[in-house]
């Protein structure tokens, strides 16, 4: 028998996965998968600073801090690739590890120097935790996931064109730089709302795995987005349910392993069915 709270968590994480799938699919097609991972790791210092400033564990504040430092990380990344001789892959590795390292130092400091720190559960943002998510928090995450899906739906045609053929889009007069930035913003929001459940370290794979699993089944973008949404939702629900019965395992890891299972099944099925 599912308790009411568990049900809410399942629904919330399901919606999160439903949005992560299609946004992840666009991120992968736009070759932003690694950028998404760097962004995710770069959220940690902001998360910790937000906690230090607010002094308590308020999810909206933490997520706002996380979003700000994630975007700062991506900005540093862009500046490094543009104004130094560092290539993008090296720049990604630098941003990812330096920001994450700074975040780890901050989070240890918080746990040692504040009375509420040990209970702050910052660790649950690093590895992910679905059990014990509060109703208000779940509503916030689900609301943002729906908002991201609505924007994606409204701008489907524009994003398709932008990612497939940027120059052609530019010739037609679309503001490609701003559209690209908006897409990055959507990826950032998704990464940030994925943090409480999946955690800093693994959240990028919630975007990538359902997308690449869905790609095994279809060659059309609209079907890819729907299917990756479905796989993402299933991943979220099954992962959260499993993690409720495996309280010692970090939820992020459980969710990612479920996503991995979907990918393996899809890849094998594709080989067997189409060769």
């Amino acid at each position: 028998m599912l308790r009411y709270n568990t049900l809410i968590v399942l629904l919330g994480v399901g919606l999160l996965g439903a949005a992560a799938g299609p946004i992840g699919a666009l991120a992968v097609l736009r070759r932003r998968a690694l950028v998404g991972d760097a962004l995710a790791h770069a959220t940690l210092p902001g998360l910790c600073l937000a906690f230090l400033i607010i002094g308590e564990r308020s999810m909206p504040a933490l997520l706002l801090g996380a979003l700000a430092s994630g975007l700062l990380g991506v900005t540093v990344l862009a500046l490094l690739s543009r104004y130094t001789r560092i290539k993008e892959d090296a720049a990604i590795a630098i941003v990812l590890s330096v920001f994450f390292g700074a975040g780890l130092v901050l989070s240890r400091w918080i746990q040692n120097h504040t009375t509420t720190g040990s209970k702050a559960g910052l660790d649950s943002y690093i590895l992910g935790k679905t059990a014990g998510l509060l109703l208000d928090d779940v509503l916030l995450l689900a609301g943002l996931a729906v908002l991201v899906l609505v924007v994606l739906l409204a701008l489907y045609k524009e994003f398709q064109l932008l990612i497939f053929d940027r120059d052609f889009a530019r010739v037609q007069g679309w503001p490609v730089a701003r559209l690209d930035l908006l897409l990055l913003g959507l990826i950032a929001v998704l990464v940030v709302i994925g943090l409480p459940a999946v955690g800093v370290i693994l959240v990028a794979s919630l975007l990538i795995l359902p997308a690449v699993a869905a790609r095994m089944w279809t060659d059309r973008l609209h079907r890819l987005l729907v299917l990756s949404g479905l796989i993402g939702a299933l991943t979220g629900v099954v992962g959260a349910a499993l993690s409720a019965s495996l309280p010692r395992a970090p939820a992020g890891a459980v969710i990612v392993l479920v996503a991995m299972a979907f990918f393996v099944v899809s890849a094998v099925a594709r080989r067997l069915l189409w060769g």
Binding site: Q160, L161, F164, G173, W174
Partner: peptide
Amino acid sequence: FPVSVGDVALMGTYG
């Protein structure tokens, strides 16, 4: 990229 021939031709009308 996951688009069909028809999808690409349709992109000409987006502007």
